[in-house]
Design a binder for these strands. Structure first.
Length: 769
DNA sequence: AAAGGCTCATTTTTT
DNA sequence: ATGAGCCTTT
């Protein structure tokens, strides 16, 4: 036991060893949050306060869940595989698989990913002749998900205008359609579980009594449904209840746009009468200057629970700030600095380039590529989302649940087998008429179309029959062949990568089977204890028989069903080159939870970061500031920030002011690097027309304009330059016109708007550094 | 059924 | 500027 608690600081120790009461742990960035969470679980188990089966640990991402299990395994000699550690969605899936009957779902229900959900809605709009201009599918999806996240079914949503009434109607139709198909979307997993346990008292009490300790990670990211789900599980306001241990950081709440409600933290404190609030403020990650920046910046937010990070490490290097003349120059600077970091011995994977929006990555990628520096861009399509993989999955889905219309439509004519639009329309009509799935409607379609469709059905049935006794990886291999997918891509000229991805699915299946313990004869792979339990009914104190989820899971789910859930719930990696020794590029959002020795925060300009759309939303700028806080706290040793005077965005040149966040940082922790002014005007190493234009002339109209203007005014003002005006404050010169005494400047004063000032009259100060 | 042309939007993302 | 989705053409 002493081993476990060894090396914990006083706050961490207090959090880990709290009594069995609800607690809120305010865990600052880099304060050892995951360590506290996992050590708490280990300590509870080791001291005999709870058995591994009595722990429920909830995370948002599979990655976090996996990490928790790995760390826990290292601390205790237990098998964490059977433990209830997972994402909200993964845990709900587990519960619904077991209690599918009570949840009114087919045993082989399948999970729609966002793409599939959108396609269901599009189909629905078409089938009901609804104008998709007036009701854009994306908006409808948003409406539905939003309602579900609030815990509301269609009959409970209040509509205030005809549009909303129609939306509610569509919501109902959508749910009906999903029910017919035997599919559930992500939000449905949670809502269905919530409703199941709300209405089924014995079941609810069973789990409430079972889960003595519930632990939640990233609590600030919970939405209302998730919070209510946790309340239900913890038996809040009920006789049977576990203890809720919530860990989060309100300063790192950056997902309001997808329904996260930071207010859940204070709600939890109030509703659970939390006596144990512990702040983890000791930071083990960043040097002093970096933390000072983070602290001073976030102090500008009004709604905070309050927290200040401290470190024992020294000040370290000051934060270096660079004002680039253009986005290209910004990228070039990042290259130069990265090169010297690498020359000093920094590993490339310890350099991260962060940006507010994905569009910014392009220029930087280009510069890194030209410089021959390997890089890796986060984001993009994940493995299970790639078209060819989704096609293969669709065949598997049809074998397991033929009523999944999305899967049916995806592959009924892929590879092409002469089933065109007309056949599908006829089939859809029959399906609508009888209220059945497309697959089930096939026998009702006569003629040639009927026979092609019939052949497709035979193909699926045949594959199902043929693979009945096969281990999962072999099954996948057979389906890849039988579906014609492999042959199809073999004949295609650009198909090599796709074939490779398809082949990879066989190994993904092998890996899944061995890692998740879903061998063909499932119970044999479990430990003796689980085998004894498997399928056994548990009688609770009310004398009601309940099949507990972990006893029943392997018997209730075929390896195929399990693999399909896995494909939906864990979309896989996004690139072939994982873990390469490469510079890491990502949005600030995806950097959350990561840390690097060297971090660049780029594009720190008004309109970009903070993003312009944030000023329109209530609390938007505060969320942007938290985002900036997350960005800063990713850095261990060196932090770089930069911005550009001119930037290409959406095909237009923009002149942004530097970000307001610079004004919120402690000057003594910063080192402003004077821009190499001539680099913008005379750089010859760069091929860009933009940079070369003033020297050699070019057909780049904007560059020419720029060059002429800067000469014609003679006053020395330059487009992109920052200035200060007595009345309007700081601004950026966007354009220059006229010359001599007629010289005027068009200046963007941010919140004071765009002004055209006469340069011979207006008093302007240069703001260059 | 594939290829080429047009319009349109374009913050952030996991499950 | 760029790419995705949709529509037209071959």
């Amino acid at each position: 036991m002493h081993n476990l608690l060894h090396n914990l600081n006083p706050e961490q120790l207090a959090a880990v060893t709290l009594p069995a009461q609800s607690a809120l742990i305010l865990a600052g960035a880099g304060s050892g949050k995951t360590r506290v969470l996992t050590t708490r679980i280990a300590w509870l188990i080791q001291t005999g306060q709870v058995s591994p089966a009595g722990v429920l640990a909830v995370t948002f991402t599979n990655k976090a869940a996996k990490e928790m299990m790995t760390r826990l395994s290292a601390m205790l000699p237990i098998n964490t595989r059977g433990m209830w550690i997972g994402t909200f969605h993964g845990l709900c899936n587990r519960l619904l698989r077991t209690h599918y009957r009570d949840a009114a779902l087919p045993q082989t229900f399948q999970i729609l990913d966002s793409q599939d959900q959108l396609s269901v809605v599009k189909r629905l709009l078409k089938a009901n002749n609804i104008d998709d201009e007036k009701y854009p599918p994306k908006t409808v999806v948003y409406f539905i998900n939003n309602a579900k996240d609030q815990g509301l079914r269609a009959d409970k949503v209040e509509a205030y205008d005809p549009i909303e009434r129609k939306m509610v109607e569509l919501y109902q139709l959508y749910d009906d359609q999903c029910q017919r198909e035997g599919v559930v979307d992500f939000a449905e997993l949670l809502l269905r579980t919530f409703e199941l346990l709300s209405r089924n008292q014995p079941l609810r009490e069973h789990y409430q009594q079972r889960f003595k300790h519930i632990l939640v990670d990233e609590f600030q990211d919970t939405n209302n449904l998730q919070y209510n789900w946790l309340k239900l599980m913890a038996g809040h306001g009920e006789r049977h209840g576990g203890v809720l241990f919530a860990v989060g950081d309100d300063d790192q709440s950056i997902y309001a746009f997808r329904g996260a409600n930071v207010g859940n933290m204070s709600a939890f404190e109030r509703e659970f009468q939390v006596q144990n609030l512990i702040k983890l403020e000791q930071n083990y990650r960043s040097h002093g200057h970096i933390l000072d920046c983070a602290n001073q910046l976030i102090a500008n937010n009004s709604k905070r629970l309050g927290k200040n990070l401290r470190t024992d490490a020294g000040h370290g290097e000051p934060v270096r700030i660079y004002e680039a003349s253009s986005d290209l120059a910004e990228a070039q600077w990042i290259i130069e600095e990265s090169k010297s970091l690498i020359a000093e011995g920094a590993s490339r994977s310890e350099i991260a380039v962060l940006y507010r929006s994905n569009a910014q990555s392009r220029v930087i990628e280009h510069a890194l590529f030209s410089a021959g520096i390997p890089y890796h861009v986060y984001g993009g399509l994940r493995y299970f989302q790639r078209a060819e993989v989704k096609h293969a999955i669709a065949y598997l889905q049809l074998m397991d649940n033929p009523h999944n219309d999305s899967a049916f439509l995806r592959v009924v004519n892929f590879p092409t087998r002469g089933i065109g639009l007309r056949s599908i329309e006829a089939l859809q009509a029959a399906a609508d008429q009888y209220g059945i799935s497309l697959y089930a409607a096939v026998p009702y379609v006569a003629g040639k179309a009927g026979s092609s469709l019939g052949n497709f059905v035979k193909l699926v049935e045949g594959a199902r029959f043929e693979t009945q006794q096969m281990p999962l990886p072999e099954l996948v291999r057979v389906v890849l062949e039988a579906s014609g997918l492999l042959t199809h891509y073999q004949t295609e000229k650009e198909g090599a990568d796709r074939i490779e991805n398809l082949e990879q699915m066989v190994s993904a299946a092998s890996q899944f089977v061995s890692e998740e313990g879903f061998g063909q004869a499932a119970p044999a792979h479990l430990g003796p204890q689980a085998q004894a339990q498997a399928g056994a009914a548990i009688v609770n104190e009310d004398g009601i028989e309940i099949i507990d989820a972990d006893a029943a899971l392997p018997t209730v789910m075929s390896p195929l069903s399990a693999f399909l859930s896995h494909a939906s719930l864990e979309a896989g990696d996004n690139q072939a080159t994982v873990g390469q020794e490469a510079v890491q590029m990502m949005t600030v959002h995806s950097a959350k939870g990561l840390e690097f020795n060297n971090v660049f925060i780029t594009g720190l300009e008004e309109g970009l970061f903070p993003h312009e759309s944030s000023s329109r939303e209530e609390g938007g700028v505060e969320e942007e500031r938290r985002l900036m806080y997350v960005a800063i706290t990713r850095a261990r040793q060196r932090l770089y920030m930069c911005f550009a005077q001119t930037r290409m965005l959406h095909g237009q040149t923009r002149y942004n002011m530097k970000s307001r966040f610079f004004d919120e940082l402690p000057e003594e922790s910063l080192k402003w690097l004077s821009p190499k002014v001539q680099s913008h005007w005379s750089a010859t190493s760069r091929k860009s027309a933009w940079d070369e234009a003033p020297l050699v002339g070019s057909d780049n109209a904007i560059a020419q304009k720029l060059a002429q203007k800067s000469v014609s005014t003679g006053a020395g003002w330059r487009i992109g330059e920052s200035v200060a005006h007595g009345k309007f404050g700081e601004g950026v010169i966007v354009n220059l016109e006229g010359s001599g005494s007629n010289a005027r400047a068009q200046i963007n004063f941010g919140s004071h708007g765009m002004k055209v000032l006469d340069l011979s009259i207006a008093k302007l100060d240069r703001l260059g550094r």
